[in-house]
Amino acid sequence: MSSQRPSAWYAVPAFGFFALFAVLPMLLVIYLSFTAWDGLGTPALNGGENWSRLLEDSEARASVWRTLVLMVVSWLVQTPIALLVGVWAAGKQRSRAVLSSIFFLPLLLSTAAIALLWQALLEPNFGAFVGGPLFLGDPDIALYTVVLVISWQFVPFHTLLYQGAARAVPPSLYEAATIDGASRVSKFRHITLPQLRYTIVTSSVLMLVGSLTTFDTVLILTNGGPGTATRILPLHMYITGFSGFEMGYASAIAVVLVVLGTALSLAVMRWSGFRQMSSQQEGS
């Protein structure tokens, strides 16, 4: 059996890159998190000072909370939309191809373009909603505006995942259900959803870890403002590191991000039974 698998040599390039661009920087960041370094001169070890400061930093705590809100709300917004549109787009309706291409349009735009576009649309004096709510200027709603923009950007991608997966569901299952007299809704509930189970897991992991590390959209759209209303953890790290040049402290925040991200994807994998990865289909 093992002789038929590719030799481990095949993994060398991938592992090499991983070691160089992921493991090595990660180790450096862990080291830096125990130092004081302003980017000039050499890092000086300062024990656990960054870490005790992190525990007392109310701004860091608030930004962890904002990150969680962003994560949960964008999952709640994106999953149902992507699931429904994806399943719909997997069908054979007449308007499907045209409408799907329109839905997938945001996928073609770069993040910077999307952020600038929405920034202009939501501008309070010259945007599309003059006199309306201050989407980016009201500290109470700015975070939700960010969620909407991020969702607008990523729903098409997840729709694509669901579309592909829904197409792979064997038609025989639906045919059998039709013969049994199942309604549209119960077909969706009892055939489509269970068949898409692993796609839901994959898409959710991507969404959750993605929102944990999302950064570029928020940086350009609000730069964490108004005030600190949208300063999520990665942005707090960036501002600390590259505006305040407190590289040691920023590294401590980075370590927290790494730990949270890893724990999150492990947890989702475990609870969702992703590891067993058995096929849900007949005959296998």
């Binding site: 093992s2 698998r5 030799s7 481990a8 040599w9 993994a11 060398v12 390039p13 592992f15 090499g16 070691a19 160089l20 090595l24």
Partner: peptide
Amino acid sequence: MSRRSWVRPLIAMGLVAVTA
């Protein structure tokens, strides 16, 4: 797959990283 067959690729991987 035997344990040994992993060792050499691992070393090679390390070397790639160091050389880079």
